[in-house]
């Protein structure tokens, strides 16, 4: 049962946030222990705080799964009760192709949405989001950016210094029971 201290600090602009992240990383803080809060999307330069994602891959896999599954289902449906068509194919490449396409797209839509819910942790908390689910969440006023740092074992000296150096407007520490 290590005690966890959360450093919450407010910044005025993106540049100082970028400086702060760089300083924190230099101070040994892992990207997984860092969170930014803002009322708008923050686009940081590559390499500052990357959050790798598999969303494209998931979308493609979901699309393929729905497309293949849907086509297989159509094939099954057209063959379980075979209708005499007088020479026309029961299962046709052209006709089913359209259905395959639409279901592929539906698969992409659903997997994108599902993965968004998963990745953002809004519905299903997992990984570090699950670990941090009781962490304090700052109420962010407009045009401000808050940085939250997770410090294990009360080791807050170096991160605090890094935040101050980068130009934090305020820094507060909250201690809570962690894992």
């Amino acid at each position: 049962m290590a005690s966890i201290t959360w450093l919450l600090s407010e910044f005025r602009d993106k540049d100082s946030v970028i400086d702060a992240i760089r300083a924190l990383r230099a101070a040994g803080v892992q990207p997984g222990d860092l969170d930014l809060f803002s009322e708008e999307p923050l686009e940081l330069p590559r390499g500052v705080l990357d959050r790798p994602s598999h969303s494209s891959l998931v979308a493609v896999l979901g699309a393929a799964a729905f497309g293949i599954g849907g086509t297989a289902f159509v094939w099954y449906a057209q063959h379980t009760y075979e209708v005499i068509t007088g020479g026309m194919p029961v299962f046709s490449f052209w006709g089913t192709g359209v259905i395959t396409y639409e279901l592929t797209m539906l698969g992409a839509v659903l997997s994108t949405f599902g993965y968004f819910l998963f990745e953002s942790g809004l519905v299903f908390k997992h990984g570090r989001l699950k670990r941090d689910k009781d962490a304090p969440v700052p109420v962010v006023p407009p045009e401000k950016i808050w940085v939250r740092v997770r410090c294990e074992g009360g080791n807050t000296v170096r991160p605090t210094a890094a935040l101050q150096e980068a130009g934090a407007v305020s820094i507060e520490a909250k201690t809570g029971a962690g894992l």
Binding site: P41, S55, T112, S120, L122, V140
Partner: peptide
């Protein structure tokens, strides 16, 4: 929704994919 960068990233990526789809 808390406005964390994880959520924003996920949202922006999802919107980009969705726009194409």
């Amino acid at each position: 929704w808390t406005g964390s960068d994880t959520e924003w990233h996920a949202l922006e990526r999802a919107m980009k994919l969705m726009a194409g789809i």
